[in-house]
Computed example of a mutant assay.
Amino acid sequence: MVSRRTTLRSAGLLLGGAGCLGGGPDADRVRWRKGISGGLALDGDDLFVLDYLTLHALSSADGERRWAIEYDDDDFERRLCLRSDIVADDRYVYLPGCDGLRALRRSDGERAWFVGSALRTGIGHAGGRVYANADDLLAIDAETGAVDWRVAVGGDRLASPAATEDGVVFVNRVDGVVAAFDADGEHRWTHRTDVETRSPTIRDGTVYVATSPDPGRAGRLLALDLADGAVRWAVDTPSPKRGTRPVADGDAVYLGCTGRDSGRLVSCSRTDGAERWTFADDNSTVYEPAVAGDRVYAGSNDDTLYALSRDGDLLWRVEMDSTVGSVAVDADRVYASSNERLVGVERD
């Protein structure tokens, strides 16, 4: 189906900044704000944000809009069809949805190709391919949109896949089936957690998978060998937040968690999983963090963006007026998307 859409150019158009940020001790760090919100994809000096049915391309320096593509509810069989976990590379922005996968030119938002298989989750991207969970696991040529291969994986509630140059790992969230495939689609291994499992992360030959044997109360973080699926280590954690994945950087892996009394951001050693520190928020959830340099940045449903050292010390906080669910970072700024707005914040 060809989507009906409108291209909105930046000339003469302003993104609103309705509402205001809370005071807080570090509010002066905010460099710009826009009245949009949604999942973030940051690549180079471009920031892409999906706000319901509109994909915005912004300048990361000042938040000015480069272009926007607006879809209509009538384009889809059901509301809330487009997914906020978008991905960008040097050519395209990949926008998953219930009707298929769109590749949009990052220069102007025009559609380059479309794969019409209903996607159930977000996508993985590596090695010149996009990997997507539809009725099958699809390996799609990132330049042309041709489906290189597909394999049946089963299950309705799948997590977003993780990919490397030579393969892909996917998870069936409810059944806890973690499976790896080679670049040609050959099955490599399967590991079963038998509990609710989040999206995987791959780093330096290790697959990090967060599980929740008792959602909202208890979790477990696993490190699996990418070559054969063998368990390198497994440690108990708070319950990992649904829709997030572990973040591995340097010698640590970080996990945003949820709980009855407070949310937690947990740092574990990548060597053996030993807990290094835990940071608690003022509500019930810390979301997937972003890591850069010697800083860790995370949003929370206590309406706050936090900056911590790699040792877990709180460095600063910016109070916002709604849940901060998505964070990205570059050399100069942290970009935080709340339920109300997007802000660019001075990093250090």
Results as ranks from 00 to 15, higher is better:
M1N: 12
M1L: 14
R4Q: 10
T6H: 08
G16Y: 04
C20A: 13
G22M: 05
G22I: 02
P25K: 14
P25N: 12
D26M: 14
R29Q: 13
V30R: 01
R33K: 13
D45C: 01
L53Q: 05
G63Y: 03
E64A: 13
R65L: 05
I69K: 07
I69Y: 03
R79I: 13
D85R: 15
I86T: 14
V93T: 12
P96E: 07
C98N: 10
D99F: 05
D99W: 03
G100I: 12
L101E: 00
R102G: 05
A103Y: 11
R106A: 01
V115Q: 07
V115T: 14
V115A: 15
L119E: 10
R120P: 01
I123F: 07
V130N: 00
N133F: 11
A134C: 08
D135V: 14
L137G: 07
L138R: 07
L138C: 08
I140M: 05
A142M: 08
T144F: 07
G145K: 09
G155D: 08
L158R: 13
A163Q: 11
V171R: 08
V174P: 00
V178I: 12
R192Q: 14
D194G: 02
D194T: 10
V207H: 09
V207G: 04
P215Q: 06
A218F: 11
L222M: 11
A223D: 06
L224I: 08
L224P: 09
A227W: 05
A227L: 15
A230D: 10
D236I: 08
P238R: 03
P238M: 04
K241W: 13
G243Y: 07
G243R: 01
R245Y: 03
A248V: 00
G250I: 10
A252M: 13
L255N: 01
L255E: 03
S262M: 00
R264I: 04
S267Y: 08
S269A: 13
R270V: 05
F279V: 14
N283R: 13
N283D: 15
T285G: 00
V286S: 07
D294Y: 00
G299A: 15
S300T: 12
D303V: 06
S309Y: 04
D313K: 11
D313V: 12
M320C: 12
D321V: 12
D330S: 03
A331N: 02
R333Y: 02
S337W: 02
G344N: 05
